[in-house]
Simulated scan of single mutants.
Amino acid sequence: MKKVLFATTALVMTAGVAAAEVAVSGDGRMGMIYDGNDAQFSSRARVTFTLTGESDAGLSFGGAFRVDQESDYTAGYAGSERSAARGTAGAVWISGTYGKLSMGDVVGAAEAAIGDLPEVGYTDGEFGGDIEEINYLVGDGENEDQGPTILYEYTVNNISFFASATDGSNNSTYGVAGSDEGEDVPSDSVAYSLAVKYEGSNWWAALSYSEADVYDLDPTSTSVTASASELALAGGASFNNFSVMATYLKYDDRFVSGPVLGDDEFIVGGFAVDATLEETIGLGATYQMDAILVEGFYRKDKYDLIGGGSESYDSFGIGADYDLGGGAVLAGGIIDTDYLDDTVADIGVKFKF
């Protein structure tokens, strides 16, 4: 695959000092999205800076961010925009004999070990609300207002260890205390995640545990008295041209609101919630044959309603990519999910520069 790469090299006159490099790459896409009612045009272009270097002692270090991440106001609050300069977008890292340490907008330990379900479509699942992304309790958007996330990774033989945390200062805990996305729920405690993964010749298995604070069930209180927790177990295998994966997540005290409508509401930390997310089951499969890649996933989320009873939300998607060569891929996908109560689709071309 051809790549257009612009690089600058800083040459230091001191003997033994390695060169540093700044590389510029990009991605783009153009096509159409069907939202269940109408078809619309959709396009995007982005530029990414990747910075790498090496110390005298052989430590590798670097950073990466997109141009649009330097001033991202999608959070919706004055003074709370996400940016690489603030450590809430992009990432920096350092690695050596004793593992890799990353900080910024990085995934939590659970997602680093397990990952998400396969992305389908030319928008990589965005047209379906990114439903293929597992709702991990720590990192990767779930705690994006908690400041930078720190992630440590270390591999010995076939076993990899992961640990991550957010510092918990001046943060909100969307998805933990039951607030709607964007609501500011203050907390000063750390959210953390631990994971371990074993990789065999053509299979892998992973286990993770995550925890983040929730609030006193007294409607007049905002003190932290309990924690939401997440236990995840996953595995996958590859044979011939097929790859499959399965994941199971069990939650405790994870209050939610929004798409789930119960018979009654409950107050947690001053916010109305209507359910607790109890478990998530995910299945994914891919098939690669020459230039054709077929991907699919199934997901089920189970909720216990505050007013009594339970509900399950099902989602599935399937898509195909055809590699045109030179960094261009023709792709399309279909997603049906109870969260949207509709079937959506997309088709278009995506590029890598």
Rank of each mutant, 00 (worst) to 15 (best):
E54Y: 10
L249V: 10
E183V: 15
Y77G: 15
T149S: 11
D253M: 01
V176A: 05
D314G: 01
D180Y: 10
E311F: 03
M245G: 05
A64D: 13
A246W: 03
L324Y: 10
Y209T: 14
G332N: 14
Y73M: 07
V67Y: 02
T74A: 14
E142F: 00
I134K: 02
A331G: 12
G129E: 06
G115W: 07
T50P: 04
E132W: 04
L324F: 06
K100H: 08
T88W: 04
F127V: 12
L207K: 08
A10I: 11
D105T: 07
R82A: 11
G348D: 12
V224Q: 15
D342C: 11
T166D: 13
L117M: 09
A89V: 12
I114N: 12
A345F: 00
T123L: 00
R46H: 03
A112N: 13
G141H: 04
V4W: 02
E183K: 01
D274Y: 05
F127K: 11
K2T: 13
S179C: 13
D252K: 08
I347S: 12
G62V: 15
G308C: 07
F316L: 08
G309N: 04
E144R: 03
G326V: 14
K302H: 00
Y298A: 01
S208G: 11
W203P: 07
W204K: 03
D323P: 07
F266N: 08
V294E: 06
V196P: 02
E295R: 10
Y209A: 15
L249K: 11
L233W: 02
Q146G: 01
S42L: 03
L330Q: 13
G348E: 15
P148V: 08
E278A: 07
G284H: 02
P148W: 05
Y73L: 08
G296Q: 04
T280H: 04
Q146V: 02
M32R: 06
Q288L: 09
P259H: 08
K250I: 10
I334R: 01
A45G: 13
A15Y: 05
S25E: 11
S83W: 00
S25N: 14
A205F: 11
D321W: 03
A328W: 04
R254E: 08
D130H: 03
D321Y: 07
R82T: 14
I131K: 07
I150D: 10
Y215H: 04
S43N: 13
Y209G: 14
Y339S: 13
S189A: 11
F351W: 06
K2R: 04
N157R: 02
I114K: 01
F255K: 14
Q288T: 15
D130A: 06
D140W: 00
V120Q: 04
D116K: 07
K302D: 06
S43G: 14
G333S: 10
M103Y: 04
Y209N: 14
